[in-house]
């Protein structure tokens, strides 16, 4: 057990997997000598050499496309796309090839590729540095989509993602990079399981990534008024642990889904629909969503007004309680 930031925890997870499996590779822009713009790959090239940890040219489609080829040759690539908003040049390789290759080869070519993408807003970044692209990936069959909420989750889920036989899009919440937490370096993670991070009885807050911590803050605030909120961290959007979500909302009867991405066709819509399909009779109020607005991610000076905050979350909670 150690106190680690999310950056350090992810670095440890990469180090662990590079040590355990000599076929694991880490590459992307600035991940070598610099150790990544967020230092997630700090020291890895020194320890594992330039063959296994290397810088690529500035070309996202080629990072993913070459990862596909490396996987076909029996390697286990972990590549980094530097920021969410720059993952789109690689989207064609992800959708057209990475997600479909197992199928196109009738299961003969698995692509155990992990694509790490620092995601989400809240750090005062410039344009294209604050987006939440999870829906694009979740809508693409053949991919797994993982979004850790903090250091302990980040460590376990990244190790599980790298070991997974399918391609995994691993969305790292930038605004949580410097949060410290106890990390158990022996604990192995599993994909596809949500986690109850706070138990409660009146309503359930459902989130992933950075919004999990925001929901916990909201739950603490609500508790001061005698409202006990349960908080569920999805951890993985694909596969989605509908059972855990449904069980929680069946218990509380009310749910609010919180995410940074825009409302329309956001992943909250999927969760809301799943809850309605599975536990409609147990719902005491409509499932509400607190999300980013339907606008391009805004400039840094106003991003705080865009991101779901305690007021908006608690207002939604009040609505489902009053319904």
């Amino acid at each position: 057990m150690a106190q680690l930031t999310l950056v350090q925890a992810l670095n440890e997870a990469l180090r662990h997997e590079l040590r355990e499996d000599p076929r694991t590779l880490v590459f992307g822009e600035d991940v070598g000598r610099l150790g990544g713009v967020f230092r997630v790959t700090d020291g890895l090239q020194e320890e594992f050499g330039e063959r296994r940890v290397f810088d690529t040219p500035l070309a996202e489609s080629a990072i993913v496309g070459s990862a596909i080829g490396l996987a076909l040759a029996g390697w286990r690539p972990v590549c980094e796309i530097q920021f969410d908003g720059f993952s789109y040049p690689a989207l064609d390789q992800v959708i057209t090839n990475l997600a479909k290759y197992r199928g196109r080869t009738r299961g003969r070519a698995a692509l155990p590729v992990t694509i790490r993408i620092p995601s989400g807003g809240g750090i005062g970044g410039p344009e294209h540095h604050g987006e939440s692209p999870e829906t694009y990936y979740a809508h693409t069959a053949g991919l797994k989509v993982v979004a850790p909420s903090g250091p302990a989750e980040g460590y376990q889920l990244l190790r599980a993602a790298i070991r997974d036989p399918d391609p995994v899009i691993f969305l790292e919440p930038k605004s949580r990079y410097w949060t410290k937490e106890e990390v158990d370096a022996a604990a192995a993670g599993r994909l596809g399981q949500a986690r109850i991070v706070r138990e409660g009885t009146h309503a359930t807050l459902i989130a992933w990534g950075a919004m999990t911590a925001r929901c916990l803050q909201a739950a603490e605030a609500a508790a001061e008024d005698g409202v006990e909120l349960e908080v569920v961290d999805c951890r993985s959007l694909v596969p989605l642990d509908v059972d855990t979500l449904s069980a929680s909302v069946r218990k509380t009867g009310r749910a609010v889904v919180v995410h940074e991405a825009p409302l329309t066709a956001g992943f909250g819509a999927e969760i809301s629909a799943r809850l309605m399909e599975t536990i409609f009779r147990d719902l005491k109020a409509p499932v509400l969503r607190v999300t980013g607005y339907d606008i391009p991610y805004p400039a840094a000076a106003v991003e705080a007004a865009y991101l779901p905050d305690l007021d908006r979350i608690l207002t939604a909670v009040q609505k489902v309680l009053d319904y």
Binding site: S61, A62, V64, G65, S66, A67, I68, G69, L70, A71, L72, A73, G74, W75, D92, Q93, T96, N97
Partner: peptide, 13 residues
């Protein structure tokens, strides 16, 4: 799009 797969495979080889 498959040109990149050939390059990746070749890098792996």
């Amino acid at each position: 799009s498959h040109a990149l797969h050939a390059v990746g495979w070749a890098m792996g080889a």
